[in-house]
């Protein structure tokens, strides 16, 4: 397995022989296809981090993230979400599917 990108808390690996990816979340490692990685990206990039600083919008500063068709469930705090955003955006650059400069996801 090759490391594609490593952030503070998480690591993305490519397993070429299995034609898939692995994300090490610390507590557990999750196997993902590129489609699932795209779905993860969509979920993570859709999180509005500003809500974490508004007690009306997000009282406790946690996000519940369900991955791979509800197979995995994570409860992540603000720092972890920020780190996951870093992992996701940099990983797609490393994978050659993103230039990184144009940040376009807003909703």
């Amino acid at each position: 397995m090759n490391v594609i990108f490593q952030s503070t808390y998480y690591t993305l690996y490519q397993a070429a022989n299995e034609r898939c990816f692995y994300v090490d979340f610390g507590q557990k490692t999750v196997r993902m296809s590129l489609c699932q990685l795209l779905a993860l990206r969509h979920k993570v990039m859709s999180i509005n981090i500003e809500d974490h600083f508004d007690s009306d919008l997000n009282a406790h500063g946690f996000e519940v993230l369900m991955l791979c068709n509800k197979e995995h469930l994570f409860v992540l705090n603000t720092l972890e979400i920020l780190d996951l955003k870093t992992l996701v955006s940099n990983s797609f650059v490393s994978l050659g599917l993103s230039v990184g400069a144009l940040e376009t996801i807003t909703s």
């Binding site: 490519q14 898939c20 795209l38 050659g96 599917l97 993103s98 230039v99």
Partner: peptide, 24 residues
């Protein structure tokens, strides 16, 4: 290293985001 990502997807994610916006 095999390029599984490029083999699975043939456009850039930035284009994908913009096209999803256009779908909307």
């Amino acid at each position: 290293m095999k390029d599984i990502a490029r083999q699975s997807m043939s456009i850039k994610v930035e284009s994908m985001d913009l096209l999803n916006g256009q779908i909307k």
